[in-house]
C-alpha cells in the first residue's frame, strides 16, 4: 500500500486516515488513507464499486464514517455535518447534477454566495436594509461569472431549462461563486460531449491558476485523468492501493491487477 508522502507545499489540504464505512456486511470504504496536496489537481480513480463516491460522501459529511479521521486544512472535520464542512471551504458536486431546477440560474448563483447574512432569519429581521447592498454586489459578481461560463443569456431562465452540459457548467459556476479552497468533483465529465468536457477542464485549470483552488475529482475517462491530474490516487475494494504521478500509476502492477481483476469479475 502506498504511503503518504509529505506534500512539498507544506501540510496537505486534505488528509484522510484509515477511513472506514460499511453498509450491512459490505465494507464500502475499508481503512482508506490519502492526502491531497494544496493547489493540486488530483484524480481519484478505481473500478466500479471501489468506494470512491462513498469516500467523497464521508469526507464531505454526507455520510458518517464508522472509523478514521478526516482533516481539512489542519482542522479535524470527521463526522461533522455537510453544511459545516462546506462553509469551512470544502465543497463538492454530485454524480447526477443538482441544478435547482425550479429556480432561476441567477438564484442558483446567489444561493452559493457565502457572505449574505440575510440568509439567517434573525439577522434578516434585525437589519432589513443592509442586505440589499450585499445582494446587488453578489448579483454583479454572479453575472460576471455567468458571462465567463457563457450562461449570462440564461441568467433569468429556470435552471431546469438548461441542457445537461449547461447544468454541469452552472454547478461549476456556482462553486466559483462560493469560492471554496478545495473542490471535490464526482465524475465531472460523465455524460458530457468532448467539446464541453474540454471546456469544463479548462475552467478547472483556470480556477487553480487564478485562485489556487485545489481539486480532487473522480473520473473514469483515463485520457482526461492522465492529461489533467498532477497526482492520481487509485482505490480498489474500499482501499487506496496506489498514489503517484499519472505515468507511474499507469505502470503500477497493483493498479493493473485491480482493473483486470474487476474486468475478470465482470465477465465471469
Amino acid at each position: 500500500m502506498a504511503s503518504r508522502p509529505a506534500a512539498p507545499g507544506g501540510a496537505p489540504i486534505l488528509d484522510v486516515r484509515d477511513l472506514c464505512r460499511a453498509f450491512g456486511g459490505v465494507r464500502a470504504v475499508d481503512r482508506a488513507s490519502l492526502a491531497v496536496e494544496r493547489g493540486s489537481i488530483t484524480a481519484l480513480i478505481g473500478p466500479n464499486g471501489a468506494g470512491k463516491t462513498t469516500l467523497f460522501n464521508l469526507v464531505t459529511g454526507f455520510l458518517r464514517p464508522d472509523a478514521g479521521d478526516v482533516v481539512f486544512d489542519d482542522q479535524p472535520v470527521t463526522g461533522r455535518p455537510a453544511h459545516v464542512i462546506a462553509r469551512l471551504g470544502m465543497m463538492r458536486t454530485f454524480q447526477l447534477t443538482k441544478a435547482l431546477a425550479a429556480m432561476t440560474v441567477l438564484d442558483n448563483m446567489l444561493l452559493a454566495a457565502q457572505d449574505q447574512p440575510a440568509e439567517h432569519l434573525a439577522r434578516l429581521l434585525a437589519g432589513p436594509a443592509g442586505w440589499r447592498r450585499r445582494e446587488a454586489a453578489n448579483r454583479a459578481r454572479a453575472l460576471g461569472i455567468l458571462e465567463r461560463f457563457r450562461l449570462a443569456a440564461q441568467a433569468r431562465a429556470y435552471a431546469g431549462t438548461l441542457s445537461g452540459g449547461q447544468r454541469k457548467l452552472l454547478e461549476l459556476a456556482r462553486l466559483l461563486m462560493a469560492a471554496p479552497r478545495l473542490v471535490l468533483l464526482d465524475e465531472p465529465l460523465a455524460g458530457v460531449n468532448p467539446v464541453l468536457g474540454r471546456e469544463i477542464l479548462a475552467h478547472v485549470h483556470a480556477l487553480r491558476r487564478e485562485r489556487g483552488t485545489t481539486f480532487l475529482f473522480i473520473e473514469h475517462d483515463m485520457e482526461a485523468v492522465m492529461n489533467n491530474a498532477d497526482t492520481v490516487i487509485v482505490m480498489a475494494q474500499g482501499r487506496v492501493i496506489a498514489r503517484g504521478r499519472p505515468r507511474d500509476v499507469r505502470r503500477d502492477p497493483a493498479v493493473i491487477d485491480a482493473y483486470l481483476g474487476a474486468h475478470a469479475e465482470d465477465t465471469a
Partner: peptide
Amino acid sequence: PWGRVLRAIREDEAAAAALG
C-alpha cells in the same frame, strides 16, 4: 435570501447542504 434558501431546500436538500 432567507426565502431563497427555503426554495433551494424544496428543490434539493443535498444540494442546499452542499452549498453550506
